[in-house]
Amino acid sequence: MATATTIAGKVVVITGGARGIGFATAKHLRDQGAQVAIGDIDEAKVKEAGADLGLEVYGRLDVTDPDSFAAFLDQVERQLGPVDVLVNNAGIMPAGRFDEEPDRVSRRIMDINVHGVIVGSKLATQRMAPRRSGHVINIASLAGEAPTPGLATYCASKAAVLALTDTLRAEYREQGVEFSAVLPTFTNTELVSGTAGAKGMKNAEPEDIAAAVAGLIAKPKRRVAVTKLAGALVASQYFLPTKVSEYLAHAFGLEKVFLDDVDTAARSAYERRARGEDE
């Protein structure tokens, strides 16, 4: 388990820090003595979150805009010092049938979930590699390895994040920069609003993901799945016949979680924001 002494004093930047996993991670690391900065596209919400957490640096951050991202990192380094850890957490998860997904929404998912991680990873590496120290932690998803009907583009985006993270881990291994991925299962944030989750499986809590991030900072490694049980079940598909793994997915109800078994009214507010309809 991560201890405060392994995290205290580290400068940590978290994207998408105004809500959910990002906010929980900021709180957890702050409580362990890290100097945390949070950015989020929702300026009003991130200001509220930053004030609630008592942070010195927080503000609007558009992860898809390199200038916005660079300016935020510059501000962090001016006020807190060199960034030790970047947590690329910002992401969206619109759900629905693939053939009905507007091209604009497909591009938005890839722009935020993939291009945003690329931008952040690149800018962080440019700062970290010359001093041969730093850690980039990308919040991916078990959906990047587990086909989930209703989330086709989201699954593709998280698979891309996993491939990117593994490649950068190999590329910068000798330059002192660590790269890790966190793979949450369904987590109780707005992303899963209006859904019931997998049958017989408990959703993770944002605090579980926060603890996993802290663990990676204390002891870097390639990946960590949350929950361990969900991670083991997803990993098992690589050792089982296709028909067996597809049967298990059916048994857990994954075919319907984001399609037929959705409370559309409960999910509508999140869907509007994720799709950019409130902007």
Rank of each mutant, 00 (worst) to 15 (best):
S268V: 04
V105S: 12
Y58A: 05
K27L: 06
T189P: 03
A37L: 01
L216G: 01
S268I: 01
V161D: 02
A26Q: 04
P220F: 13
A44W: 08
R132G: 15
A4G: 11
E279H: 10
R30C: 12
G253V: 07
H250F: 13
A156N: 09
R275F: 00
V76I: 13
E77Q: 12
E56A: 14
A156Q: 08
E77T: 11
I14K: 00
V161L: 10
K221F: 09
V226H: 08
E100L: 10
A214M: 10
A152V: 11
E190K: 14
G16V: 04
T165R: 00
P130T: 10
T242P: 00
Q35C: 11
A143Y: 10
A249P: 03
G91P: 05
S68T: 10
R223N: 08
T125F: 09
R275K: 15
A37R: 02
L55W: 01
G22H: 01
V234S: 04
E279P: 08
V13Y: 03
S106D: 13
L191G: 03
D52Q: 15
A95C: 12
T6E: 14
A265G: 03
E100Q: 12
N88Q: 10
I92F: 00
P102L: 07
T185F: 05
A160F: 04
R107S: 11
V57T: 11
Y270N: 04
A140S: 15
K202F: 06
P206G: 05
V13M: 06
R273Q: 06
S180G: 08
A266Y: 05
L151K: 09
I14Y: 01
L53V: 10
R60Q: 15
T148E: 07
G81I: 09
T125E: 15
G194H: 09
D208P: 12
N203K: 12
G194R: 04
L191E: 08
V234I: 12
A71M: 05
L248T: 02
D263V: 11
T167S: 14
L151Y: 05
I109T: 10
K47I: 07
L29P: 01
A211D: 14
E255A: 09
H28V: 02
G9A: 10
H135I: 08
F69Q: 03
E277S: 03
G9P: 09
R169T: 05
R104M: 04
V234Q: 07
L86R: 01
N89C: 15
N113R: 11
A95P: 01
V182M: 09
L162N: 08
Q175C: 09
